[in-house]
């Protein structure tokens, strides 16, 4: 147990802060504690969390992916077009995931083969992918997605829980397994921690970074699939600005922006905290403009905390050594 706490110290602290936030909202409005409200929070966090966990993979390798909002939109358009045209919904889902993987792989190509800075490379593809979405649709939304598709994600199980909640949980479990249990996970952390050292240890850094960007793209696609199911239509403007929320969730959850550190658990808590904040502010009737102010403060405080934590660790290490 102590070991678990040591490993996830940062995550537990964010979780405690989130619980404290819930307590404050409950004191201000007892309705906050309702089951339906809890479901709202979960639904609220689904898209951002799935995007954030993918983003986390890119960040762990020392990169970033600004194009996820556009991958998200393109996936919606592709899947909507297939299903509206009468295609098999499962084939449409597969096609959507392939689109995400390809767009992610192209980011990987720019970063690995052309050696572009990830920020600039994905800033470029952000515009490029968005442009493709506009060109393909002519700016028109694709509407009337059939229920046969929508129910796959949107259907309710018990107690009002929709399937996409389960999808989110599966995504996080898979992310956890990849990062914590497989060789690829160890390589991802190694590349982000010190790329040159990883290379000189025999790690295939190019392949590792490709994997990170592909996973990031696939996660964006999964989020796009969920979005399409709940809205029933796809728009080329969908997902604009989502990359910043995803970065925020990952950062609050303790993902190190320079790479090498970050856990799915932390990103999940980060996404949860942002959702609690958003829903809680509505419940206690705070003007939605203030949400931006509060979110901003939380990101800054969380980053500062990360900074302090490193100092404390270095201090303890020195004391331990004598």
């Amino acid at each position: 147990m102590k070991q678990l706490f040591d490993k996830y110290k940062r995550e537990f602290i964010v979780l405690l802060a989130t619980i404290a936030m819930c307590a404050i909202f409950t004191i201000m409005n007892a309705n906050f504690l309702r089951w339906s409200n809890f479901l709202t929070i979960l639904q609220q966090m689904v898209l951002n969390s799935i995007l954030a966990v993918g983003m986390m993979f890119a960040i762990i390798t020392g990169g970033i992916d600004l194009s996820i909002g556009c991958t998200f939109a393109i996936t919606g358009i592709v899947v909507a077009s297939i299903t509206v045209g009468g295609g098999n919904p499962f084939i449409a889902i597969l096609a959507g995931l392939i689109v995400g993987a390809l767009l992610g792989a192209f980011n990987g190509f720019l970063v690995n083969n052309l050696k572009l800075q990830p920020f600039i490379a994905t800033l470029g593809t952000m515009s490029l992918y968005r442009g493709i979405a506009y060109v393909v649709t002519g700016g028109q939304p694709v509407t009337n997605v059939p229920d046969s598709y929508r129910n796959i994600f949107n259907g309710k199980m018990f107690a009002g829980i929709r399937y996409y909640i389960i999808v989110m949980i599966i995504v996080f479990v898979i992310a956890y397994i990849i990062l914590q249990k497989t060789r690829t996970g160890a390589y991802l952390y190694a590349v982000g921690g010190n790329e040159e050292a990883a290379k000189l240890s025999g790690v295939n850094t190019v392949k590792t970074k490709y994997i990170a960007y592909i996973i990031c793209g696939v996660c964006a696609s999964i989020a796009g699939l969920v979005m399409l199911a709940s809205l029933g239509s796809a728009e080329s403007t969908a997902g604009t600005g989502y990359e910043t929320n995803a970065i925020a969730a990952a950062a609050i959850g303790g993902t190190r922006m320079a790479g090498g550190r970050g856990t799915p658990f932390g990103t999940f808590i980060g996404g949860l905290m942002l959702a609690v904040l958003k829903v809680g502010m509505v419940v206690i009737n705070v003007d939605s403009f203030w949400q931006y102010v509060v979110t901003g403060i939380i990101i800054i405080v969380a980053s500062y905390f990360e900074f302090i934590q490193q100092d404390v660790q270095a201090f303890l290490a020195r004391r331990k050594q004598g």
């Binding site: 397994i177 249990k181 160890a186 010190n194 050292a197 990883a198 000189l200 240890s201 090498g260």
Partner: peptide, 29 residues
């Protein structure tokens, strides 16, 4: 410092990184 050890990793991970295939249990390390 810049080319040898992985800065953020423990000794265990630093020693294992080049020979991970030896510590597998099925698909997992």
């Amino acid at each position: 410092k810049t080319q040898g050890f992985l800065t953020l990793s423990s000794n265990i991970d630093n020693i294992a990184i080049s020979s991970l295939e030896k510590y597998m249990k099925g698909a997992f390390v």
